[in-house]
Simulated assay, not measured.
Amino acid sequence: MAEPLGQRVVVGVSGSLGSVTALHRAAAEARVRSAELWAVLAWEPPGGDLPSRGASLVTTWHRMASEQLMDALDTAFGSEGPGVPLHALVARGTPGRALVATADRSDDLLVIGAGARGRLRRGMWPSVSRYCVARACCTVLAVPPSPLHHSLTAIHRRNVWKLPLTTRSLAG
Rank of each mutant, 00 (worst) to 15 (best):
R53F: 09
D107K: 13
V32L: 08
A30Q: 04
V90F: 07
C137Y: 08
T60M: 09
R168T: 14
P85I: 00
S56M: 08
E67L: 08
G93T: 08
S14N: 06
T166R: 13
R63W: 03
T94C: 04
E67R: 13
G93E: 02
A142H: 04
R8S: 01
R158K: 14
T167P: 07
R92W: 10
L5P: 03
P45E: 12
V40Y: 02
Q68A: 11
G48L: 06
S129I: 01
M124I: 15
V140P: 01
S52H: 09
L86H: 02
A76Y: 00
G12I: 02
L5D: 09
Q7L: 05
R119M: 15
A42Y: 05
L23S: 04
A42S: 12
G172M: 10
A136F: 03
S146R: 15
V32T: 09
L148A: 14
A103Y: 02
L17N: 14
H62P: 00
R8K: 08
L89Q: 06
A39N: 01
V20S: 09
W161I: 07
A2E: 12
G113V: 04
G47D: 10
P164Y: 13
A142C: 11
L41F: 03
S169T: 12
G83V: 05
P126Q: 14
E80L: 07
G48Q: 06
L37M: 07
V40N: 00
E80Q: 11
C138N: 09
H62E: 08
L57Q: 13
G47W: 12
C137R: 15
R117K: 11
E80S: 11
L165V: 14
R117N: 12
V40A: 06
A114C: 08
R119I: 13
S16C: 11
R25A: 14
S56L: 09
D71V: 01
A72W: 00
G15V: 04
S66E: 10
L23T: 07
L109C: 04
V58R: 11
F77W: 02
T59M: 02
G12E: 04
L165S: 10
L141K: 08
S19W: 04
G113N: 11
V140L: 05
R97P: 02
T139P: 00
T167E: 15
G12V: 01
P144H: 13
T75S: 00
S169A: 15
A27W: 05
A22T: 01
V140R: 09
S146H: 15
R53D: 08
G6N: 05
A142R: 03
A103T: 07
L165N: 09
D74T: 08
A22H: 05
V160R: 10
T75E: 02
A101C: 13
G78C: 03
V58G: 03
V32S: 06
V84H: 00
L41I: 06
A171H: 11
A42M: 07
T60N: 07
V100S: 13
P85W: 00
